[in-house]
């Protein structure tokens, strides 16, 4: 089922520097008090003196991360109607209404909110909400940072990362300004998407046991690719770990320990890699803690149906293959 959305422009970044706001002593003190109160009822403790550390060691603020990506994908004359910030792990300014701030720095002053408590499914839900809104443009921001100031007893993300994806309504044939090169050194990486990618299907399955997810995911991918051999498949790391393979599809897998951004990071790799000869892509991710399987299918904009041929280099390779994400600046951290 067509969703009426097109992925028009995208940018991403791995953040390595300090969060500027965490250098502010007033905000540090507020964050320290908030996090101490947050953890106390659960028998967890924020280490004394943690907030005396340099800002770079304190983790990130999603406001600053997302705000840096917005100008890369939203020109001032393309107002956004809806902004959704999706995260799983909270940031280090946890009491802040970050989405409201992002509305202020985004062209169009869009309706904005955050989605959370849903693990890796949140960004897919954000896309589903964007479809339901039927707006001209929706900005989906997936963010995660790698510091939790207490013993969470679960792995934290490997890196501070953010992905911004601007979707528009298919009827809007406004000017495309996609770049095909990196931004300034250390800045957002703008991903060239050519004419964009139509969102042709969007599905979420709930209550999917870990033992069932591989078969269900394979069935979904099989249905959405309809047996074609030219369709790329992008999987989140948790799903890739149990992926049984699906004949005819080249599989890209997202980096491990990036639950919120990983599959989208890998999608952008796939789209950029295929920019010269765009082809349909099916993206799927599994949230093992909450048993959500999410699937989205995209096709090059301007084609009436997902068509394409295997490229020459692909004919030399097995129909099913796994590859790491291209351009990962820190592949060892996965």
């Amino acid at each position: 089922m067509e969703t009426g959305l097109r992925l028009l422009r995208a940018a991403r970044r791995t953040f390595t520097g300090p969060a500027a706001l965490l250098g502010d002593p007033v905000l540090r003190e507020r964050a320290a008090g908030y996090l101490a109160d947050l953890t106390r009822p659960y028998g967890l403790r924020v280490p004394a003196g943690l907030f005396d550390a340099p800002a770079a060691a304190l983790g990130q603020s999603y406001g600053e991360m997302a705000a840096e990506l917005i100008p890369a994908v939203v020109p001032p004359d393309e107002p956004v109607d809806l902004l959704v910030l999706a995260f799983a792990v909270h940031d280090m300014l946890p009491g802040r209404a970050t989405a409201a701030y992002l509305s202020h720095v985004c062209p169009g002053t869009p309706m904005s909110f955050a989605l959370c408590d849903q693990g890796s499914a949140a960004a897919f839900t954000g896309l589903r909400i964007a479809r339901a809104y039927g707006c001209r443009r929706a900005l989906l921001l997936a963010v995660e940072q790698a510091v939790l100031p207490y013993d969470a007893a679960v792995p934290v993300p490997a890196r501070h990362r953010a992905v911004a994806m601007l979707y528009d309504a298919l009827a809007d044939d406004g000017a495309h300004r996609d770049g095909d090169s990196d931004g300034a050194a250390g800045g957002p990486e703008l991903i060239g998407l050519g004419g964009g990618a139509r969102v042709t299907a969007l599905r979420q399955h709930v209550d999917v046991d870990a033992g069932d997810v591989a078969a269900l995911a394979a069935a979904e991918v099989g249905e959405l690719t309809a047996g074609r051999t030219d369709v790329a498949v992008v999987l989140g790391a948790d799903l890739a770990a149990v992926w049984p393979g699906h004949g005819g599809a080249a599989v890209t897998t997202g980096p491990r320990r990036q639950p919120s951004t990983g599959v989208w990071w890998a999608l952008l790799d796939r789209l950029a890699g295929d920019a010269a000869r765009p082809r349909p892509v099916v993206v799927a991710d599994y949230e093992p803690g909450l048993n959500y399987l999410s699937v989205v299918a995209l096709a090059p904009a301007g084609r009436s149906e997902p068509v394409g041929e295997r490229r020459a280099d692909e004919r030399e390779q097995p129909l099913v293959r796994l590859r790491g994400t291209d351009g990962d600046p820190d592949p060892g951290a996965g």
Binding site: A97, A100, F113, A114, C116, D117, T125, Q204, V206, D207
Partner: peptide, 22 residues
């Protein structure tokens, strides 16, 4: 467990009305 469940936030105390709308 069969329902899609998520939190909508960062509109402070106006988040409930956004939740109804969504």
């Amino acid at each position: 467990g069969h329902a899609l469940a998520f939190t909508l936030t960062q509109q402070s105390c106006a988040s409930a009305l956004a939740a109804i709308d969504v």
